[in-house]
Amino acid sequence: MRGYEVLFAGNNFLRLLGGLWVTIRISLISIGISLVLGVLLGAAMTVRNRAVRAICKIYLEVVRIMPQLVWLFIVFFGITRSTGINLSGEAAAMIVFTIWGTAEMGDLVRGAFISIPKHQYESGLALGLGKAQLYGYVIIPQTIRRLTPNIINLSTRMIKTTALVSLIGVTEVLKVGKQIIDANRYDAPDAALWVYAAIFFMYFIICFPLSVFSKKLSDKFR
């Protein structure tokens, strides 16, 4: 059998798409929760209280310093063993990606907030805007504009990094690909190239429009 035939043999392609769906599911859920928690974290990082800011900062640094793979191992193997809670690989993956995504998202939100110049607040106040009006019409719209391209970039990074979860036994698209290649090792030795190329295009099709969109937005908002 030729390599490219393996791609469409039996239900192989459907299985790949199934794996892709797992990738998307983990990404979407973690990105969604990270977005909400990240806004809260970002807001917490701009408060006056030093203790609150310090705690947020420590959280951010700890999450950033450790490779995502180590986090996956800690949560999936470590926590499961030590607490006896039986987490599925997918649940562990979502937890880790949410912890990571929240940290990064929080930092983006904080950055966007403090990047709004002081005179924007003062001009709004001087016009007689109330606090809610000031934030609603002036500050938050500008924050969102600065934030959106960065959030999309972070999302594509998170989608790509989900490839790691195959290492804790989640059969996402990469793992499915590996299974297909292994199963056809003898009758189609060059399947690897074709299967991985197909996976490459799958990632590309998801991430490329996002990164084009983000570039468009940041050009528009500049």
Binding site: P117, H119, Q120, S123, G124, L125, G128, G130
Partner: peptide, 20 residues
Amino acid sequence: LNKIRQKIGMVFQDYGLFPH
């Protein structure tokens, strides 16, 4: 203050127009 500020127009050195 909001009421009073409506009667005071203030223009700053760095314009302070809303860019969006």
